[in-house]
Design a protein around this nucleic acid. Structure first.
Lengths: 67, 67
DNA sequence: GCTAAAAATGCATTATAATGCACTTTAAGC
DNA sequence: GCTTAAAGTGCATTATAATGCATTTTTAGC
């Protein structure tokens, strides 16, 4: 999975849950600027930032073997 | 998935493939010190660092919904 | 328990993620 | 096409990931 897929999944899920970036920032306790940077593809987030956001959105990462 | 699971998966897979940290560093073009920091749980790697390593190891991340 | 290879650690430097604040742009109703 | 909320951007600062080098510790064979 590359970063663009991650971004897409986060945005879609956030909209499904009717949460805006500011609310996601509050729920995750991650700075709004960081959320914005991530969703607009401007930064290379840390693993922790990613998992914290996914967690709040009810999503999670799994490791699989490539075929 | 939390960082410890990721570390465990990377170490196990690397050993299965009989690759040492130095070789993984060369294959991924990620600094050895970064590989060491990650595998010893001392840092919070970037998403790109994680996906690059997994990719070389024949692994990948998937997003799923938590149940 | 010696030896050699692999892994871990300490330290310093560089690059950049995270952050806040102010401002601009875009999207959605009306 | 106004208005307003949401999203995106520019800039400066702080925190820390990435890196290399030298050294120490651990692990695996013998």
């Amino acid at each position: 999975m590359h970063i663009q897929e991650l971004i897409k999944a986060i945005k879609e899920r956030r909209r499904t849950l009717k949460i805006n970036q500011k609310q996601l920032s509050e729920l995750t306790e991650i700075g709004l600027r960081t959320i914005k940077g991530l969703e607009s593809g401007k930064t290379n987030p840390t693993f922790k930032t990613v998992t914290t956001i996914l967690d709040v959105l009810g999503l999670q990462l799994k490791i699989t073997t490539k075929k």
